[in-house]
Design a protein around this nucleic acid. Structure first.
Length: 686
DNA sequence: GCAAGGTC
C-alpha cells in the first residue's frame, strides 16, 4: 500500500491554499457531503488535505445540570450541542472517511492555542490516539505558498502537546467558571421564587457588564452643575462668526455678567491672527475592530452586523479574511492589479483609481498592530455583483479606506483669531483644507468639518452684533454604544476579535443591557452587584490575565494542566459554597430586579394626558397588543400598535405631537421609528 | 436553559 499523509487544516480556505502550495501541479479537488478536500502526489506519497470548520468538538456536561458545583464535562461533536453547528457533522464524517487509509498525519491548523486544540481533537476523536501521538506539525505564520512549503519541509516531529494542554485547560476553566456561576444564579432565582430566569456569567461577559454598570452608576449619580459661557457674535468681513471668551466656562454667573457688561457697546479689535499648517496622514488599514468602529460611526451598523456582512463579502471573494487584528498590508499583495480592477469595475472608483495608478509607487499607510495569521482587511478587486444594500455600503467603506491608504497626506490649515473687546479676550477658530490628499478617496467617511474664516488683519476693527450670556449644564459621561464597548474590551484585553461583538449581543439578549446608547437594566445592575459581593473574581478582567499566565505556565512546562484545573476547582468550591449559603437572598434580589426590568421594558413613555406611564399591554379579549396607561381605569388613553415585530421604547417624545416614539424591528425589514399617536399632524400629509 | 472559542 502506498503511504498516505492526511493534512488537517483549520478551515476550508486554508485547506485550499495549503493544497495549492504543496502540490507539484494542480491538486485534484474532491467533495464529500459538501466538504472540500484535495489529493495529490508528492515524492512518491499520496497526500490528502482536508479542512475542519473551526472547533468540531466542544465541551458538554456529561449528566444533566441539576446542581452546582459541576465539573463533569467531556468533548462531544459540536453538532450534538444546541441546534447550531449542523455542518460540523459532514466535516467529521468526511475526515473519518479520508483518514481510513491514512498512514501519516500532519496538523496544519493555525499555530496558536485554539488551532492546536482543533487539530488535536480531530486526531484524537476521529483518527485515534495513535494518530495523535504520531502526528507531525506544520508551523507557519502566513498562508503564502512560500511559508507553507517551508513549513512542510521543516515539519515539527511532534505536536506541541504543551500548547494543546494549555488550550484544553482554557476550555475547561471557562466552562467551570462560566457554567457554575451561571447555574448558581439561575438556581438561586428558581429556589427563591419558583421561576426560571436565564442568567449567565462568564470570564468575558461579566467584566464587560461591569464596565457598563460602572458607567451607568456614574451617569445615575451625576449631578449636573450650571456654568456660563460668554459668546460674541461678530461681523467678520460680512460673514457672521461666533467667538468664545478665552476663559471658557464661568462657574460664577456674576463674573460672566461682568464680562458681558464690559463688552457692551464696544467694538472688537483683532488682537492676533495665527495660522498653522498640519499634515494629516491617512488612517491605517482596517482590522476587524477598526472596521466595526468605523461602520458604526459612518453607517450605524452594530459590530455583530458588520462582522456578519464582512463574512458574506469574504465568502463572495470580494474582501480578504475579516477576522484579523492586523493593520499591515504586505508588499506581496498586488496593489496595482487590485486598484486597476476596482477602477474598471465601477464608475465611481474610476477617477481615484486612475490617479493612484499614475503614482510612481504604490505604498500603503500601515498601522502598528499585527496578526500572526492574516494581513489587514483589503478588497480583492473582484467585481461585486448582486450585493444587498448593506453589503454594498460596507464594501464601499472598505474600498474607500483601501484607496485612501495610498493617497498623499492631507494638508490642513488651522487658524485662531483672538479678539479684544473692552479689555476682554475672545477667540474663534477656523480650519480649511489646503490639499485634499487621501481625504477625497475616503469621501464622505472623512469627517473634516471645515470652518473657513475670511482673511483678517491684526488691529482691524470688527462690529459686534451681540454679546451672549448662555447658561449651560455640565454633562454626565457618555454612554457606551455597541461599537465603543467592543473597542473597550479590546483595550482591556478581554475576548477575541471573533467573539467580542457576539458577547455584547448576548448581554442584550439576557436583558442585562438595552438601547443603542447602552443603558444597564435593573437586572444587569443586580447581577453585577451580586457577583461583586459573592464572586468578585469573575467581574474583573484580571481573571483573563490570570488564565493567560496559567496557560503560559502550562506551555512552558512549569505547571501541568491537572494542577491548574485542580486549583481552579478548589477556588470555585469555596466561592460556590459561600454563594449557596446566601442563595435565597441572592435569588430574591435577582428576581425582584428581573421583574422591575420587565416592567420598565413595557414602559414606552409618559402619558400626554395624565402623566402616567404608557405601557405595552395585551388585550384580554382579542390577545392583541396595544398601548395603555398605567392609570387605567382612571385614565383611558390608549394607542394601537402594529402586531408584528418587536417594540423598543426610544425614550423620546414626538417633535410634532409629544407622544412617545418607538422603534419596531421586524425580521427581514429595516427597523423603523414611529410615534404612538395615529392622529399625529406629521402623519396627515401622506 | 447556563461560557468562550473557533468557523461558515
Amino acid at each position: 500500500m502506498v503511504a498516505k499523509t492526511l493534512i488537517i487544516c483549520e478551515k476550508p480556505a486554508a485547506a485550499a491554499k495549503i493544497a495549492v502550495a504543496l502540490a507539484p501541479g494542480q491538486p485534484e479537488a474532491g467533495q464529500l457531503n459538501g466538504v472540500p478536500f484535495y489529493n495529490f502526489e508528492l515524492e512518491g506519497r499520496r497526500v490528502t488535505v482536508v479542512p475542519a470548520l473551526g472547533h468540531l468538538f466542544v465541551l458538554k456536561n456529561l449528566k444533566p445540570l441539576r446542581d452546582y458545583p459541576c465539573y463533569e464535562v467531556g468533548w462531544v461533536p459540536a453538532y450534538r450541542v444546541g441546534g447550531r453547528a449542523t455542518r460540523t457533522k459532514a466535516f467529521i464524517e468526511a475526515i473519518r472517511e479520508l483518514a481510513k487509509d491514512a498512514t501519516d498525519f500532519i496538523s496544519a491548523c493555525d499555530y496558536d492555542i485554539e488551532g492546536s486544540v482543533i487539530a488535536a481533537n480531530v486526531l484524537r476523536f476521529i483518527c485515534g490516539e495513535e494518530a495523535l501521538r504520531r502526528a507531525k506539525r506544520m508551523k507557519f505564520s502566513t498562508l503564502t505558498a512560500e511559508d507553507l512549503r517551508q513549513a512542510y519541509e521543516h515539519l515539527l516531529p511532534r505536536l506541541d502537546y504543551e500548547l494543546i494542554e494549555a488550550g484544553v485547560a482554557r476550555h475547561l476553566l471557562d466552562w467551570y467558571w462560566g457554567m457554575n456561576v451561571s447555574l448558581a444564579m439561575s438556581t438561586a432565582v428558581r429556589l427563591a421564587e419558583q421561576r426560571f430566569v436565564k442568567l449567565s456569567a462568564g470570564r468575558v461577559q461579566t467584566p464587560t457588564l461591569r464596565i457598563l454598570a460602572e458607567r451607568e452608576r456614574e451617569i445615575r449619580s451625576f449631578k449636573p452643575e450650571p456654568y456660563w459661557v460668554v459668546n460674541l457674535v461678530v461681523d467678520l468681513n460680512g460673514m457672521e462668526g461666533v467667538a468664545e471668551h478665552v476663559k471658557g466656562r464661568f462657574s460664577d454667573r456674576v463674573a460672566a455678567e461682568r464680562v458681558v457688561a464690559a463688552c457692551r457697546e464696544k467694538p472688537a479689535r483683532v488682537f492676533s491672527v495665527e495660522k498653522h499648517r498640519q499634515q494629516r496622514s491617512p488612517p491605517p488599514p482596517f482590522n476587524l475592530s477598526d472596521l466595526q468602529m468605523e461602520a458604526h460611526r459612518c453607517l450605524g451598523y452594530s459590530p455583530l452586523r458588520t462582522q456578519q456582512i464582512a463574512q458574506e463579502l469574504y465568502q463572495a471573494a470580494l474582501i480578504s479574511y475579516p477576522r484579523t487584528d492586523s493593520q499591515k498590508l504586505p508588499p506581496s499583495i498586488d496593489f496595482r492589479r487590485i486598484i486597476e480592477q476596482i477602477g474598471s469595475a465601477s464608475a465611481e472608483y474610476r477617477r481615484p483609481a486612475e490617479e493612484l495608478l499614475s503614482l510612481p509607487e504604490l505604498r500603503p499607510r500601515e498601522g502598528e498592530k499585527t496578526d500572526p495569521a492574516h494581513p489587514a482587511i483589503y478588497p480583492t478587486g473582484q467585481r461585486p455583483e448582486g450585493l444587498t444594500g448593506q453589503q454594498r455600503k460596507l464594501y464601499d467603506l472598505i474600498v474607500r479606506r483601501f484607496l485612501s491608504l495610498f493617497g498623499r497626506p492631507a494638508l490642513l490649515e488651522s487658524m485662531r483669531v483672538d479678539l479684544d473687546v473692552g479689555g476682554e479676550r475672545f477667540f474663534i477658530r477656523g480650519r480649511r483644507v489646503l490639499e485634499e490628499g487621501w481625504l477625497k478617496y475616503y469621501g464622505d467617511y472623512a469627517a473634516t468639518e471645515e470652518a473657513i474664516l475670511p482673511e483678517l488683519q491684526e488691529g482691524q476693527s470688527l462690529a459686534v452684533k451681540e454679546v451672549r450670556l448662555e447658561e449651560r449644564q455640565t454633562q454626565p459621561p457618555q454612554r457606551y454604544n455597541p461599537a465603543s464597548i467592543v473597542k473597550r474590551m479590546e483595550e482591556v484585553g478581554i475576548g477575541t476579535k471573533s467573539t467580542r461583538a457576539q458577547i455584547v449581543q448576548n448581554l442584550y439578549e439576557r436583558g442585562y443591557i438595552t438601547g443603542r446608547q447602552i443603558t444597564v437594566t435593573d437586572l444587569g445592575m443586580q447581577v453585577v452587584d451580586s457577583l461583586l459581593r459573592y464572586c468578585p473574581e469573575i467581574t474583573s478582567e484580571e481573571l483573563t490575565a490570570t488564565f493567560e499566565r496559567e496557560m503560559d505556565a502550562i506551555q512552558e512546562g512549569k505547571k501541568t494542566k491537572e494542577e491548574v484545573i485542580e486549583r481552579a476547582r478548589a477556588e470555585l468550591d469555596r466561592i460556590l459554597a459561600k454563594f449557596k449559603q446566601h442563595q435565597l437572598e441572592i435569588g430574591r434580589l435577582l428576581a425582584a430586579s428581573y421583574r422591575a426590568s420587565l416592567l420598565k421594558q413595557r414602559n414606552l413613555g409618559k402619558c400626554p394626558i395624565c402623566g402616567g406611564e404608557l405601557r405595552l399591554t395585551v388585550s384580554r379579549a382579542t390577545h392583541k397588543r396595544f398601548v395603555g396607561c398605567s392609570n387605567y381605569p382612571r385614565c383611558h388613553n390608549s394607542f394601537p400598535l402594529p402586531q408584528a415585530g418587536t417594540i423598543h421604547p426610544l425614550g423620546e417624545a414626538c417633535k410634532f405631537c409629544g407622544a412617545p416614539v418607538i422603534q419596531i424591528n421586524r425580521a427581514g425589514a429595516r427597523p423603523y421609528r414611529m410615534c404612538l399617536n395615529p392622529d399625529c399632524p406629521a402623519k396627515k400629509n401622506r
